[in-house]
């Protein structure tokens, strides 16, 4: 059982790390601000979500698990909102560099 949980943690965190990696590559390689923003928000949402998922079996108490989930939810909220704000600001400026 423990082995299975460890395996699950490793798999989920590795998948999360992959999304962060992919998001960073996108941030560096994508041609304009909006697509870069897209890459970045995917990394935040999915990458962090998977890392949190992988950490969940390893927490000591229910409260810690809830804190982890709250952190993810807060990052989702602020990430989505700031991506919107940056996107709007870009459109208002009219430039897509």
């Amino acid at each position: 059982m423990n082995f299975a949980l460890d395996l699950f943690s490793i798999a989920a965190i590795a998948a999360g790390a992959f999304f962060f990696f992919a998001g960073s590559v996108g941030l560096l390689r994508f041609p304009d601000s909006l697509t870069r923003l897209h890459a970045l928000s995917k990394a935040d949402n999915l990458g962090l979500g998977l890392v949190v998922l992988g950490l969940l079996p390893r927490v000591g108490s229910l409260l810690d698990a809830l804190k982890l989930l709250a952190i993810w939810a807060l990052v989702l909220l602020s990430g989505a909102a700031s991506a919107q704000l940056i996107g709007r600001a870009l459109r208002r400026r009219g430039g897509d560099e």
């Binding site: 909220l77 602020s78 700031s82 704000l85 709007r88």
Partner: peptide
Amino acid sequence: ALLLLEQTL
């Protein structure tokens, strides 16, 4: 988006 932040965050 700003209003959403203000109301939820």
